[in-house]
Write a protein that binds this DNA or RNA. Sequence first.
DNA 1: CGCGGATTTGACGCTATTCAAGCCCCGTGG
DNA 2: CCACGGGGCTTGAATAGCGTCAAATCCGCG
Lengths: 247, 247
Amino acid sequence: MTGSGVIDLTRLRRSCARCSLRTLCLPASLAPGDIDRLDRLVQSRGPLERREFLFHAGAEFEALYVVRTGSLRTSCTTEEGDIQVLGFHLPGELVGLEGLGTDVHQCDAVALERTTLCAMPFRDLQRVAAEIPGLQRQMYRLIGRDTVGDQDHLVEIGRRSARERVALFLHNLSTRYSGAGYDRTRLQLSMSREDIANYLGLAHETVSRLLRTLSDEGTIEVKGRSLEIQEPGRLAASAGVAEGGRS
Amino acid sequence: MTGSGVIDLTRLRRSCARCSLRTLCLPASLAPGDIDRLDRLVQSRGPLERREFLFHAGAEFEALYVVRTGSLRTSCTTEEGDIQVLGFHLPGELVGLEGLGTDVHQCDAVALERTTLCAMPFRDLQRVAAEIPGLQRQMYRLIGRDTVGDQDHLVEIGRRSARERVALFLHNLSTRYSGAGYDRTRLQLSMSREDIANYLGLAHETVSRLLRTLSDEGTIEVKGRSLEIQEPGRLAASAGVAEGGRS
DNA sequence: CGCGGATTTGACGCTATTCAAGCCCCGTGG
DNA sequence: CCACGGGGCTTGAATAGCGTCAAATCCGCG
């Protein structure tokens, strides 16, 4: 599991206090002493290689994870064997919440590229959070953010045309990446067209076609999985949102 | 549903310990003494009449709510003014979680019929939960259940035919109602066809047509908003799930 | 260099939407 | 008590948008 980047990772891992994602993550607005306590329970996890699973549906829920670098896909498989992609998890975002209710993970989580994470064993986290109100509060914030993310997903795929879905998807990705400190106009997609299609409730051919349409219009430029947003305003308009809006 | 009226309700409200929903709700697996503490912070709310709002998007997040009797619809409005129905909330289910992240409600919540609720001021709840591990644990369970509910919704509307969506919707309603102690075969729909359509990402005409189809097949019997499931097995099959399955 | 999976593109058909009209149910007021 | 009105629901017909199937091309990787 802990592949070849150990040294790097260890350094990165050393402390939440120095983590570039700390304002997005659990340490946000914690006192230095409290961050130290949190630090002691956070475990490095990974790197996971592409296609490697973080957990499977049915596995015991042991920890919450935050993506540090890379990305994951969560999905569940229906009885007929077809897959519904539930979400993509980018740096600074939480993974594993769905296990909270039953202590068993309800979906699969798989790395889309080389991915590093922080694991927070839930039992320990709970114990420490009970003593640090700010940490408790921040956990709830992350949970709330996650809930709102699910809502956004619903808004993406309910009663919208395929074109709007694709545009909204790109717009949301851009917003989320920029929140984690990445360039908001250049996206390196880590998921396949099939994944996107499945996430949006479309056929992968449709996704492909619509990327081309948006590209022909000059809104974006696509080359394989690298994508540049050339006209953010037009993209937002195609998505049916005000520029910079949340969903 | 719970008997005929007000007296019953008042008595029920008196204490979580006697509430018929307690095993679904926060008191689950709490010691009697702890239930008393919880009791002291829980406030009765309502009844809300049909069309009355519990909160609006943008309102300050003050409390979590659990539906006691009746039902609510949560929805959000996009910039173009069209509505996405996010969820229906039945007895024993949580409302208001989406406010957790930002301290501001992200959607509207409106009663679909006469509805009573328990309100748990979040500040107090947090304080007490910090001292009662079992309560904290149960809060997480409810949150997890909510997350899984959102996932189910996604599975309902992603990559499924209209027919499957409608069947799955009814199947889920039936499962949820029976979890709260109601008859699993007789449903009294509190939401309009329009609401259902919006929830499922369909046109209301389509919902109407498919209810008729299922009815013609003898799977269900529909008369306005009262609905009887005559062939649960066939309904589950139409929904594409194993009978009794979760989603 | 060549294989296999991912992506693109085209042609065609079906499903669900849209538009339009009529109906039913229920509450309201005469 | 019945007539009226209106919103919700149903039904029909025509259309468009998206899915399906099929084939070609691209690309990364061994």
